[in-house]
Amino acid sequence: MATQEQDAYICRECGAKVAPDRRYCVHCYSPVGRGSSRAHVDLARETATTHRPDPTLVFSPEKHEEIVRRARSRKRIAIAGIMALLIIVAGSIVLSTVNRNRRETQRTMVREQAAHRDLNTVAEALERFKEDVRRYPTNEEGLACLIRKPAALRQDVAENQSAWFGPYIDNLPEVDPWGNDYVYRTPDGGRNFELFSPGPGGESGSDSRFRVGSQSSY
């Protein structure tokens, strides 16, 4: 036992006893020993490497902690960069969707307002037509008689109690903002009328949200 203790090496860095068959201190990882151990260290220092000037420093706890700390720092930076990129991409997608929905809503509102405005304008012209002619246009005459005198009314004013004093509208809208024709019809030969736009859904008659009639307030 005493012989083993005498043969043991003493670490010059931390003073710990190291077994003679060890090349490095198990406490501080410093190289110890004689002869072949020192030759090993010298050979390692002479070995060319592109990673570090002294390969023996890999066993230094301080160096090891520094390497681990740098690796963790790079990992945190990479994760933060990826998260920031994902947030930017997600924000761009959400913003684009919100803007697209807002523009679509605005276009829908503008079209609906234009449809109501056209219907009210034509309905007012129909009322002025009725004041002069004593009836609304027939289905055969249609809305065209608001800007052109119908053939049935091309008679001498003295022979008729009614007369056409148009045009009753400057610009007659023919299609609604969705590209559909405005529909005019009278079910009783001109005593009442119904004017509507099929709208975006193609509704007809009383089902249409864009509708005026002789009994409607507009």
Score class of each variant (00 low, 15 high):
S96V: 08
E124R: 14
G189M: 06
T3L: 07
R185I: 04
S30C: 08
P31T: 00
R135K: 14
A151P: 01
R154S: 08
I10F: 03
Q215I: 13
S73A: 12
P167L: 02
F193S: 04
Q155R: 13
R185D: 09
A8D: 13
S208Q: 00
A152V: 11
F165P: 02
L86T: 15
P137K: 00
D207Q: 12
Y9I: 07
P53M: 06
H40W: 09
N120Y: 11
E112W: 00
G202Y: 03
D181W: 07
R12Y: 10
L172I: 03
V89A: 15
S197Y: 01
V18E: 05
W164Q: 06
M83I: 15
V89Q: 05
G201T: 11
A78I: 06
I88A: 12
E131Q: 14
R72V: 02
T47D: 05
R111P: 01
M83A: 13
Y182R: 02
G33W: 01
R154V: 03
A114V: 08
N192S: 15
E66D: 07
A123G: 04
T3G: 08
R209D: 11
T50L: 14
T108Y: 07
A90C: 06
E65Y: 11
V58Y: 10
R70E: 05
R38V: 14
A71P: 00
R45K: 10
R135W: 02
